[in-house]
Simulated scan of single mutants.
Amino acid sequence: MHKSFALTPSQTYLKNKLDERQSSGTYRTLKPENDLIDFCSNDYLGFARSSVLKQNIETEVQKYPSASNGSTGSRLLSGNITYAEDLEKEIAAFHQYEAGLLFNSGYDANLGLLSSLAQRGDTIILDELIHASAIDGARLSYANRYSFSHNDPDSLEAKLKQAKGNCYVVIESVYSMDGDTPPLLEILNLTEKYGAHLIVDEAHAVGLYPSGLVNELGLQNRVFALVVTFGKAMGSHGAIVLGSNMLREYLINFARSFVYTTASPFHQLAAVKMAYQLLYNAGQEITRLKNNIDLFKNQIQTNDAFPLLNSNSAIQCVVLKSNHKAREIANILQHAGLDVRAILSPTVAAGTERIRICLHAFNTTNDLTLLTDTINKFINA
């Protein structure tokens, strides 16, 4: 007979919070890999699965037989190598910025940049749908924090009028949960009008736009800082903050997620370098991705009850307006052999629950037809 033990107060708290999630239908679990047709991952150009990239990484690593398996420490101690500094210069040149500083992930990049940049008495203004990493970075600063209505310049201007001290406006160039793009030039003009600085997270734009939307529009000389991540279209891992030499030196001294973490290992750096070399010549993959986006949008038959969000990116979302409906259609798609996931509240606002469809260069016409036919049948039943 097993002896039962009373839960401690902290265990009771944990149990109650998990029970709340389960009863509300928002409980999260991890799922292993599967053999379904990929409409879920951020591997927009297929680099993560690329045998060419894998071979190029192996060849690059073999060129440096003395490279360590691990970096052995933070970059301010034993973990810095010339290869990392050269890679930063190459990436900065590709995106047409003066300098860059590598971080271990996009989360670390936003956390380190925003938490160190703004001080007490300064202001950070975030788009209301900005990624959680930017929200957390802003929270860790001592700055005044505001959010403005999604992609709404009028709402942004109202917040800019309230700003004090040094002001930083933070947006994404392609939003991860909606797939839409902000009026970038209009927002940039507003920030300049009020003497604020614009920071753009390009995580989901690089690939669709080879060097990102900021560079595509020729605005890199006016955008204070750019965050580029390598775990989406680049098929690798890590991130870089791009800006001036002065910003780079500042982050080396004050960004805690850079200063107090073990540096990326050589293999990861080699993977990023080879991914950029592949991106230089990825014209065919980018064209296939754009063609697949057009094909999907032409074939999908949404309606007012279940609308398709306005997006020209690889991220396409059909709004089901409830966790139950979102789960239902995701299960139908998965049983049809398609890896499409439901995005539930509270990850997105209640009433905007959806399926999030990620399109890729490697998806075939047959894949897309099966996808759209299955969705069309469900929403028009």
Score class of each variant (00 low, 15 high):
A138T: 00
D180K: 07
T123P: 07
I125Q: 08
D122A: 10
K159C: 14
Y142Q: 12
D178K: 15
P153E: 12
D152G: 05
S133N: 05
Y175W: 05
K164Q: 11
G179C: 07
Y142P: 11
G137W: 01
K164T: 15
R145W: 13
A143Y: 02
A134H: 00
I130P: 04
A158P: 05
D127G: 04
H131E: 08
A132F: 08
A132Q: 14
K159G: 14
M177Q: 10
L126K: 02
S133C: 01
L126R: 02
E128D: 12
L160G: 09
D154W: 06
Y142I: 00
Y175Q: 12
C167G: 11
L156R: 01
Q162F: 09
A134N: 01
A132N: 10
L117S: 13
D127K: 00
R139E: 10
Q119M: 10
L156Y: 04
L126E: 04
D122N: 08
A163N: 01
H131K: 13
N151L: 12
D178Q: 15
D122Y: 05
D152S: 06
A143N: 05
A132E: 04
A132M: 12
L140S: 14
T123M: 00
I135M: 11
T123D: 06
Y175G: 03
Q119G: 10
L117V: 10
D154R: 10
D152Q: 06
Y168T: 01
N144Q: 09
D122R: 10
C167S: 15
C167H: 01
D152P: 01
N151K: 15
S173R: 03
Q119P: 06
R120S: 14
S133V: 08
Y142R: 14
D180P: 08
S133H: 07
V174A: 08
R120C: 11
N166W: 05
C167M: 10
L140E: 15
V170A: 01
V169Y: 06
V174Y: 11
H150F: 08
P153Q: 01
D122E: 01
V169D: 00
F148Q: 01
T181G: 06
Y142W: 13
E157M: 05
K164S: 14
K164M: 14
A163D: 04
H150C: 07
S149F: 08
I171Y: 02
T123L: 02
S155G: 05
D152C: 12
D136R: 13
A138I: 01
A163L: 07
S141P: 02
N151C: 14
D152W: 02
E128K: 10
K159R: 14
G165M: 04
D122P: 11
L126I: 00
E128C: 09
D152F: 04
K164C: 13
V170I: 07
S149V: 15
E157T: 03
K164V: 12
D136P: 05
Q119V: 07
A132S: 15
I124V: 09
H131W: 11
S149W: 14
A138E: 00
N151M: 14
H150P: 06
N151D: 13
I135K: 13
V174I: 06
C167I: 11
Y168W: 12
D136W: 11
D127E: 02
N166D: 13
A138V: 02
N166S: 15
I124N: 03
V170Q: 03
A138D: 00
K164I: 13
R120W: 15
E157Q: 06
L156K: 12
L160E: 07
Q119N: 05
Q162N: 14
F148S: 05
N144W: 11
T181Q: 09
E172V: 09
